[in-house]
Design a protein around this nucleic acid. Structure first.
Lengths: 221, 221
DNA sequence: CATTACAGTGAACATCTGTGCACTAACAAG
DNA sequence: CTTGTTAGTGCACAGATGTTCACTGTAATG
């Protein structure tokens, strides 16, 4: 009758500072990770509360201790994924100087970040268009904001200083869309072909260069 | 013995079409339409066989007389949507002339076709990334083919004649990705604001022009 | 020490899902 | 005419789903 209740998969370290809050946050994290793991080859909307809970190692009803619905979890996932994206862009912002350097460095950090946080980027690109409801709305908002920031950044380059805000925004959106397309190709690499990533990176550089070369000849209408 | 018994040409009224095959094809069509209608604010993967059947006005089990699974229906939907896209591109191909004319005309036909076949384009853009399994694979294949054709078309423009096949492909992919982004914005217009479409169209023209202007300064690496 | 707050459990529910099976009625063909 | 094909029906089943409810053991609080 005792039958110790088995605890969620927290790997017991010999010295565990398991304050109660931390344990809660740990299973919350487990839920997020579980959802991300299951969303690898399915739409987020296709996940069920029950299986996410099971994958996280808790019983379905315990899910509600952390999120009030799957949509709620989805939004939390968006925030987490966008944090990945922002730390990436912060790193990419460091690079100075010429367009070509900026392009090469940006594509490099893009690829390495996608490789390191594949699940996050897969989630973002897939749910951006494919998503529905609150999740897609959250991504759309975040991505719009992201585009605005990029537009400001672009305005600092020579040749773009006197562009109108609208034109800068247009260019930023083009870049974001193109690079999200690249991200999608990166996370969808199926073949273990080793240079597939480098080919995609080369394509990304070319696309960015084509856009940037256009700046010289631009005149707004 | 006989050659071919020619049948009496029964003059049928256009609204009395009871050949057996035709009636079958008609409910098949009803199923496709029903799925497209239900997929307006949900992922295709989120549709159930039962509700599609109900929406089409038949009983769930009758579904199997027309498709062997929902994936099967999805692929049929891809073909149908791609046919929309191809007739569009065929229309847009008519205009040779200058870059600027081509851009203006292309964006115009794009917008009008999207408006006329909104459901098809919504389905395509949403399932392209968000889709899963056979449906996404089918779209990816079709879209790759589509990019190849566009690359060939581009090669006919002056200034692009001596571009390498790889570079043409890169540019075609950029254009396709950018325009699919535009399509997504078009089908996602929620506000009844009347000039929203025109603003998006203007943005599309600018993006295409930015790309095309880059052609002049391009040198392959 | 005794009490409270609360993350997690397990059984139960109503509903929806895909699919198998036997059936019907209307068309097509001999 | 008779016969065979077949689109569509109705029932039934086993499984999965979201959510409720009363519960339990333990960390936190006093």
């Amino acid at each position: 009758m005792d039958a110790r209740t088995l605890k969620p998969v927290t790997t017991r370290q010999p010295d565990e500072p398991v304050s109660r809050q931390e344990r809660k946050q740990r299973t919350r994290q487990a839920l997020l990770d579980a959802a991300l793991r299951l969303a690898k080859d399915r739409t987020f909307a296709g996940l069920s509360l029950r299986e996410v809970a099971k994958e996280a190692g808790i019983v379905p009803t315990a899910f509600y201790r952390h999120f009030e619905s799957m949509d709620d979890l989805g939004i939390a996932l968006v925030e987490r994924a966008m944090r990945s994206l922002r730390t990436m862009i912060r790193e990419a912002r460091q690079n100075p100087a010429t367009y070509d350097d900026a392009i090469r460095a940006s594509v490099h950090t893009l690829c390495s970040h996608v490789r390191a946080n594949e699940a996050h980027f897969r989630f973002l690109t897939r749910e951006r268009y494919g998503g529905t409801g609150p999740v897609q709305a959250a991504i759309a908002t975040e991505l719009r904001l992201f585009g605005s920031e990029l537009a400001v950044d672009l305005g600092r380059f020579e040749g773009l200083a006197e562009w109108s805000a609208e034109d800068l925004r247009m260019m930023a959106d083009l870049i974001v869309t193109a690079m999200l397309g690249i991200v999608m190709e990166l996370v969808d690499i199926r073949t273990p072909e080793p240079n597939a990533e480098e080919e995609i990176a080369a394509k990304a550089r070319k696309q960015l260069r084509l856009i940037v070369v256009g700046v010289a000849g631009w005149r707004s209408t």
